[in-house]
């Protein structure tokens, strides 16, 4: 669905569901995931339907992901960090399994 105009110059390594992803320093988690071909970020707690980044400016809250054990974070306003581990979310946040 997306491609990069050029390879990342300052590379940041992270994972999504254990899969290695190379991102560009300074970009958002959502941009890195889309550029890596990941389009389904979560399943909604209401109907379980898949969702992906929609507005990219922090307004729609459709790009919620679990980052390093903390869920319901907006991928489009969270900058990538070296070693970040991102997971998709299914249903609602489970407080008993949060590492935050």
């Amino acid at each position: 669905m997306f491609r990069r105009l050029s390879d990342p110059e300052k590379k940041v390594r992270m994972t999504f569901e254990g899969q290695d992803i190379t991102a560009q320093e300074g970009e958002s988690v959502a941009a890195a995931l889309l550029a890596a071909g990941i389009t389904h970020l979560r399943q909604t707690p209401v109907s379980g339907h898949p969702r992906a980044p929609y507005c990219m400016m922090g307004a729609c809250f459709d790009c919620l992901v679990n980052i390093d054990g903390v869920s319901n974070l907006q991928a489009c306003v969270t900058p990538v960090r070296e070693g970040m581990s991102v997971h998709s979310q299914v249903a609602e946040k489970d407080l008993l399994h949060e590492d935050g």
Partner: peptide, 9 residues
């Protein structure tokens, strides 16, 4: 105050 949806506990 109300939180986001959370798994039932």
């Amino acid at each position: 105050l109300i939180t986001e949806r959370l798994k039932h506990f």
